[in-house]
Write a protein that binds this DNA or RNA. Structure first.
Length: 201
DNA sequence: CCACCGATTGCT
DNA sequence: GCAATCGGTGGT
């Protein structure tokens, strides 16, 4: 009926970026999702305007089997989104001054997420090629805080969009960064685009 | 209630 | 190499 044309309709999506990744993309296993996020476009159509960047560095975090994961000891108020349905954000606050953005991966009830550690500027995030190199800097450049946790990447203004894939020969895999060295935490669950200035290190 | 500490960053 | 800075978490 006529009610469909009221002002409740969503703001037009930015046309210059690719199509949003479907829910199914996020539900294929954390490691596979992590690898496939390289090259995709992170877009946030937020209060400060449209911001976008190309993802070039990620890390996978699991749940009860991963001592390095926030979800290792079970769900808490902060980590609840990690146990929620796939395709949502999990943003946490660390060191009293930084925020970090994750993409939730496993099915509802199972913990799993991919930390976005590095990206290359596309729009609205400055031109410094090193400005998004590191999870704290990336979240800051996008203006993301804990207020942005548990956002649905499939239906909200925070999205990840399709983009030309990264050649396998351009992808490196290594141990995760910033963890207390432990046999169980040094698994090769970090992926990055070789040579990109958006990689933290 | 209290004490510890971190999926970081930037400066010495 | 290390200080900054503070909310989440777990133990008392």
């Amino acid at each position: 009926m006529g009610s469909a044309t009221r002002s409740t309709r969503a703001r037009p999506e930015p046309a210059r970026f690719g199509r949003r990744l479907p829910r199914s993309f996020y539900a294929r296993g954390t490691a596979l999702v992590a690898r496939d996020l390289l090259g995709k476009t992170l877009v946030y159509d937020g209060p400060a305007g449209v911001r976008a960047a190309r993802i070039v560095e990620v890390e996978a975090y699991l749940g009860l089997r991963d001592p390095a994961s926030h979800a290792y000891r079970g769900p808490t108020p902060r980590t609840a989104p990690m146990f929620g349905p796939p395709g949502r954000s999990y943003v946490y606050f660390v060191y009293g001054m930084y925020h970090c953005l994750n993409v939730v991966t496993e099915r509802d009830g199972v913990a799993g997420a991919v930390l976005l550690r590095g990206a290359e500027p596309i729009a609205g995030v400055g031109a410094d090629p090193r400005g998004l190199a590191g999870p704290g800097k990336l979240a800051r450049a996008f203006g993301l805080t804990t207020a942005n946790t548990a956002m649905d990447l499939v239906t909200s203004p925070l999205t990840i969009r399709e983009a030309p894939p990264i050649r396998p020969s351009r992808v490196a895999r290594s141990a995760r960064i910033g963890l207390r060295q432990h046999e169980t935490t040094n698994k090769p669950w970090r992926w990055h685009v070789i040579g990109s200035p958006g990689v933290s290190r």
